[in-house]
Structure formats: C-alpha cells, structure tokens
Amino acid sequence: MLKLNKIQKGFGTPGAHDYHQVLNELSLDVEKGEAIAITGPSGSGKSTLLNIIGSLDKPDKGSVLFNEQNIENYSTEQLQKFRNSNIGFVFQLHHLFPQCTLFENVLIPTLPVKDKSESVERAENLIKDMGLWDRRNDKPGTLSGGECQRTAVIRALINEPLLLLADEPTGALDEENASALIDLLLEINRKTGTTLIVVTHSMELAGRMQKVYRLTKGKLVQEK
C-alpha cells in the first residue's frame, strides 16, 4: 500500500556547513492492514519521516508511492484532498479546538463535504463506541487527557482513512490512559484493517505492533 524508495531529507543548504541530513536513502514497504512502530532517539528524524509519509512534507530525493501512485507529483490542492481522504493523524498533543464541543471537533475534517448526514452518523457511532457519548456536548477544557486523546483518534477516523499515523500518541498520557490508547489503536487496526504506523519512544507500545523499525543514521533497521 505504501512504498518509500531511497528517501533523502535534510535541513539547511545542501553542501553548506549548516546542512544536516536526517534521512539517507531510506526505504520502506508497508502492506495494507499492517501495524508498524518506528522507534529511535530524539532528533533521529522520526517525526520528519512521518510527515513525509503523511504528505505534510516532501523529501529532497526519492519517491513516495501510495497504492502505486506517486504522490510527489500532486499539486497542493491534490495533496490536501489526498490527505483528507486517505490519512488520519494522531499527535502527542490532541490539538482540539477549545471553543468547539467534542462532537464539533470530531466533524472538523468533514467540513469540505456538502452532505454531512453519513459523517454525522459515523461520528455518533464512533463516539458511542469509544465511550464518550455522554461528553459529546462538552468542550476540551472539561475533558480528561485520555478523553481528549480518544476524541483526537475519532477525528482521525471520521473520513475512514486507509492509513492512520500516530506521532508519540501516548507521550502526554499517564500509564493507565496510555495503555488504554494502545488497546484502542490496535483494536481499530484489527477491526477495520486500517494500516497503522506509530512513532514512539515507548517500548511497550512498540512491542505490541506487528513490526518494529529503529531509525538510526538516517535509515530504518527492522528489529521485529
């Protein structure tokens, strides 16, 4: 489903003393329905890699193929449509809009959709499934950290993405809520077949994925 071929990415001016290469001819093949963890020390380029996979950033060299389509050739508008239709994002911080209710936050990715009846029904079902129905009209400031992160997961799933990307999703949670979120992400992967790629420092989280890669010296080394 996803193929990264000899990705190179750096920051600064190539050839200059301030240039810092982060990814070095990195390659990765991901099959539909897989659950993958990417680990590595801070500054190794994990978030940079995830941003390239999610089309939020472009590599300096190399190609990114999604279902055999080279998304590097897409225009800005095409990339926006591609992301909204195919990819869901969950970050360490939930990034919920404080002025919106839980229900309104979940529906934000559906704003471009004219007929929202299916989206509203899907939102209702997801909120119920994740045990947040009684909090649907509450704003993020009144929710716990775990509830906010579950809301962020629902928002990431609202457009039925093929690929769910999570960047340190348990980093801001206590042990109990972190464990519950791991269970939730894996349940989504099993039940819906949504491909899952998680960047994490948590060895517990990484160990529960089907495959584990470590990002070191700009390349991925499979550890599991």
Rank of each mutant, 00 (worst) to 15 (best):
P112V: 08
V113Q: 13
D115Y: 13
E121V: 14
A123K: 04
N125K: 15
N125P: 07
N125W: 09
L126P: 05
L126H: 05
K128C: 02
K128D: 03
K128F: 02
G131K: 01
L132W: 03
D134K: 14
R136M: 11
D138T: 12
D138C: 14
P140R: 06
P140M: 07
S144F: 02
G145F: 01
E147K: 01
R150E: 00
T151C: 06
A152V: 01
V153T: 03
I154E: 00
I158C: 09
I158Y: 10
N159P: 06
L162A: 15
A166T: 07
A166H: 09
D167R: 07
E168N: 07
P169Y: 13
G171R: 13
A178L: 03
A178E: 03
A180P: 10
I182M: 14
D183P: 10
L185C: 15
E187F: 08
E187Y: 10
R190P: 08
G193C: 04
T194A: 07
T194H: 08
T195P: 10
I197H: 07
I197V: 10
I197M: 04
V199P: 02
V199Y: 03
V199M: 04
V199R: 04
T200I: 05
H201Y: 04
S202H: 02
S202N: 02
S202V: 01
G207Q: 09
G207S: 08
M209K: 13
